[in-house]
């Protein structure tokens, strides 16, 4: 009649297993019919590439406005909040001076003007991105077209990618960004607190057949194209002119090239 503890636990365990098993059996059977005949495809207008890259022609960036216009176009489109402090700051494309952007080993006689001349910096969309390797959930990943993208839905906010990125291209949402967005752009979602974000080479615009927002507003200062295509303008510049990249010695193969002192394009 009476049962001992061991028997009780065994029976309770079996009942629990039965319950879970039954639940799975029920839900498992009903899932299937989600849109069987459906397919996914690209937009017809979409511009395609296998290795998106950017050339920053520094000769085209002369005034303060040249920089601000580009940053503003990007930040407004992507709902990048403005926290007005460096601690919580979020930025996708911004300017920094030469000797900080291209850190390490400058000749000490370099003209002050050059040392402090501003450069446009953004995510380099590296060919061997350390951030992608670091991410424990594949929330940041490399697309087939070379763009290093973020899946904000999946990011757990561990910030391993921020530690891994040698270019300081990544920002973290330390606070809810919504109250700090002046004018919400309906073209792109905002982010939630606790995820990392960065430049995405405007893949949402490329999918619609448009150029990245910064390129559009740069008056030719930013040149965007497919590095794998020998006829693309970026490829011509990169192969024939003298360009520099940030920290190439780390082997990440940055895809943002800086054309310094070249006025005419190839």
């Amino acid at each position: 009649m009476s049962i001992n503890r061991r028997q009780f636990l065994r029976r309770a365990g079996m009942l629990t297993a039965l319950g879970f098993g039954g639940a799975v059996a029920f839900t498992g059977f009903r899932k299937k019919e989600v849109a069987e005949a459906a397919e996914y495809s690209l937009k017809q207008k979409a511009v395609l590439a296998t290795r998106w890259a950017m050339v920053v022609d520094m000769s085209k960036f002369k005034t303060e406005d040249d920089f601000n216009r580009v940053t503003e176009a990007c930040h407004r489109l992507h709902n990048v909040p403005d926290f007005k402090n460096t601690k919580d700051e979020i930025k996708w494309i911004w300017k920094d001076d030469y000797h900080h952007s291209f850190a390490g080993g400058h000749n000490q006689y370099l003209d002050e003007h050059i040392v402090h001349s501003p450069f446009m910096v953004l995510c380099n969309h590296c060919e061997n991105p350390p951030c992608v390797k670091a991410c424990p959930t594949q929330a940041t990943f490399k697309r087939r077209d070379g763009i290093v993208a973020m899946d904000f839905h999946r990011c757990i906010g561990c910030r391993f990618c921020m530690a891994a990125c040698p270019f300081g291209a990544r920002s973290f949402n330390f606070k809810d960004p919504r109250p700090f967005i002046n004018e919400v752009s309906p073209e792109y979602p905002t982010r939630t607190a606790g995820v990392v974000e960065k430049c995405n080479f405007c893949y949402e615009r490329l999918a619609k057949g448009e150029q990245p927002a910064c390129v559009e507003k740069s008056n030719g200062g930013l040149i965007f194209g497919d590095l794998d295509n020998p006829n693309s303008e970026v490829r011509k510049i990169v192969s024939t002119k003298f360009t520099i990249r940030r920290k190439p010695e780390l082997g990440t193969q940055p895809c943002v090239y800086y054309l310094v002192g070249g006025d005419d394009h190839a």
């Binding site: 757990i156 906010g157 561990c158």
Partner: peptide, 29 residues
């Protein structure tokens, strides 16, 4: 300490749902 450091602690199971053998964090877990 890992959990309190996460920005989105409710999504922590993503580490198991999407195992990433190239990430050292995965092995650490």
């Amino acid at each position: 300490f890992i959990v309190v450091d996460l920005g989105q602690p409710m999504r922590i199971m993503n580490v198991i749902l999407y195992p990433s053998p190239r990430s050292v964090m995965f092995y650490d877990m």
